[in-house]
Simulated scan of single mutants.
Amino acid sequence: MEGKLVGVHKVNVKLADGTSTTYYYAWRGKGAPRIESKPGTKAFTQEFIRLTRDRQQNAQAGTIGSLVDDFRSTASYKMLAPSTRRDYERQFATIRIVFEAFPIKAIEARGSRRAFLKWRDTMKDTPRSADMHIALLSNVFAWAKGEEIILRNPLEAVERLHSGTRRDIIWSDEQLSTLLTKAKPHILNVALVALWTMQRQADILTMPSLAFDGARVSIKQGKTGARVRVMAAGDILPVLREAKEEKRQRVLVNSFGQNWTSSGFRASWRKEMARLKISGVTFHDLRGTAITFAYANLDRSHEEKIKLISEISGHSSEDAESIIRKHYLAGLEVIDAIGRGTKKE
């Protein structure tokens, strides 16, 4: 594996006892950090990515490395949500390992598609991740084609390896009842806001107290940039009012009264789901569950419901309708569960 990592510096060293060993460094030169993991392993590659991710490098002109740098400097890329850019940066680090010096001219050459897909298939054990990496590389090529840097994108219409979708999953009656009646308060509050606003985890955790005006919650969606106003349901009014009264920066805080970090929440969520013995569903699946609930309770036509739900949740109309068609009838018990679980004694 180490032979495929661009920049790894290999040094053969003779030890004091007369034996020889080989050390690997993330790059050549003074101050280069040594890679401690075993060469040829996944851990070795991951450590290399971690050590070189933030290192300033000047990619060679006319290569995929320079193409990536140009793509990252565009206004549209810089406007992406910070969490999205962080994910992309990790994927770019993996892409650079293999294709940093790959000539731009060779992108258009016959057979390049096969070479890129062969690389994608080396990650087939994690198909969703493999799809994300190849999709990002395709996005770079699509941008380059639009800029007339290349004449064709060899990664157009690539079939996905991962066929699953979270749209097929919502929380069951039993799971919801357990969450809403037994979860610890700092976790329950986040779940309630998710269920009653249909927003993404990142947007909920960073929601400022100022977003609540006493009746509605104003939300700027990080992924789409869209701004929506959601009527504050009675079940989350206590959470919103408490944040206002305490003059907190954010609506939701952890068990120490501090602002959540994304990693801190994920760790706490996993721990709480294990304690409650809830498995097979994710926090993200609460959005589909909430959509099912909203559809059943809105007193509007089907078309109006779909339009309103997609505007609030950030889903496309097609995704919102797919969720509803699959889960509406089965979701009637879920609707009852939300109502029962959030009802105050």
Results as ranks from 00 to 15, higher is better:
279 S>I: 07
150 I>M: 02
234 G>D: 15
253 V>Y: 13
37 S>M: 03
189 N>V: 00
187 I>Q: 08
101 A>I: 00
343 K>L: 13
331 G>D: 11
18 G>I: 03
2 E>M: 01
104 I>S: 02
34 R>S: 12
5 L>E: 02
185 P>F: 07
302 H>W: 14
327 H>Q: 09
172 S>H: 04
179 L>T: 02
6 V>K: 15
107 I>C: 03
232 A>P: 11
184 K>V: 09
198 M>G: 04
122 T>R: 10
47 E>A: 11
283 F>V: 05
10 K>V: 14
281 V>G: 01
251 V>A: 12
333 E>C: 01
54 D>V: 00
79 M>K: 15
207 M>N: 07
300 R>M: 14
317 S>K: 13
59 A>K: 06
91 Q>G: 00
122 T>C: 04
306 I>T: 04
176 L>C: 07
56 Q>D: 14
280 G>M: 01
32 A>Q: 00
1 M>V: 08
10 K>F: 01
228 V>E: 05
138 S>H: 00
194 A>N: 08
117 L>H: 10
337 A>H: 11
274 A>W: 05
21 T>S: 15
38 K>D: 06
192 L>D: 02
130 A>R: 12
226 A>P: 00
151 L>C: 01
142 A>K: 15
321 E>H: 12
240 L>H: 05
160 R>P: 11
293 F>A: 00
334 V>N: 10
282 T>S: 15
226 A>D: 13
264 G>T: 07
107 I>Y: 02
183 A>K: 12
299 D>W: 04
36 E>N: 12
112 S>E: 06
209 S>N: 05
189 N>G: 06
220 K>F: 02
96 R>I: 08
343 K>F: 12
230 V>H: 07
79 M>G: 06
330 A>G: 13
258 Q>F: 12
163 S>M: 04
103 P>E: 03
109 A>H: 09
143 W>Y: 09
171 W>G: 10
192 L>C: 13
321 E>K: 09
230 V>Y: 09
84 T>N: 08
343 K>S: 05
338 I>R: 02
205 L>H: 09
194 A>I: 02
39 P>T: 00
183 A>R: 03
302 H>G: 04
69 D>R: 06
